[in-house]
């Protein structure tokens, strides 16, 4: 499944968790999300890639936290009351994505998800994005966990 589920389901609807980074709204398929937590004590790991905030103890499981703002090349923002960590299960690993705030859960018909226009996909940070969802109240950028979390990207970015 991984990030492909949105396209595979054809005429179905998907449930999407909507979160914010800056002024933009992003969405991630709920089937890949394990839970949403508030940031707790994060242990920094020296010499890690800069977008890795560190690790936390999630009920005994060591969970790597990445800062999605940094991952997307946006300016970082200090942790505040609205900051949330979306814990996703990916490739048997559990990873937390730190986002500005989590808003709601939306239903989205897969027919309403379109590929990104090429002018956007050509941009470096856009490789983490997989499409745009059309909602009555605006657009929603679907992120591609496969790309956001894959190790090759890490290697390449170093």
């Amino acid at each position: 499944m991984h990030g492909e589920s949105v396209q595979v389901r054809g005429g179905d609807t998907v449930q999407v968790i909507v979160f914010n980074l800056g002024d933009e709204r992003y969405g991630v398929d709920i089937s890949q999300v394990r839970e949403i937590i508030r940031p707790s004590q994060i242990t920094r790991i020296p010499n890690a890639p800069d977008y890795v905030e560190g690790v936390i103890n999630l009920r005994g499981q060591i969970t790597t936290i990445i800062n999605l703002r940094k991952r997307f090349g946006m300016r970082p923002k200090p942790i505040d009351n609205n900051t949330r960590i979306i814990v996703v299960e990916f490739d048997n690993a559990v990873i937390g994505m730190m986002v500005d705030t989590v808003n709601e859960v939306k239903y989205l018909s897969t027919a309403d998800i379109e590929d990104l226009p090429s002018i956007i996909t050509a941009r470096e940070e856009a490789k983490f994005l997989k499409g745009v969802g059309k909602l009555p109240d605006g657009l929603l950028i679907m992120i591609d966990l496969n790309k956001v979390l894959s190790e090759d990207e890490v290697e390449r970015l170093r």
């Binding site: 242990t43 790991i45 010499n47 890690a48 560190g54 690790v55 060591i62 979390l149 190790e151």
Partner: peptide, 24 residues
């Protein structure tokens, strides 16, 4: 350490202390 941190130099892993803190 897994994923991004699996190949990191200088650390063989982390541990959880009695108070729940994570220590490299």
């Amino acid at each position: 350490l897994t994923g991004y941190l699996a190949k990191i130099k200088g650390f063989s892993g982390v541990t959880i202390l009695g108070d729940g803190r994570v220590v490299p």
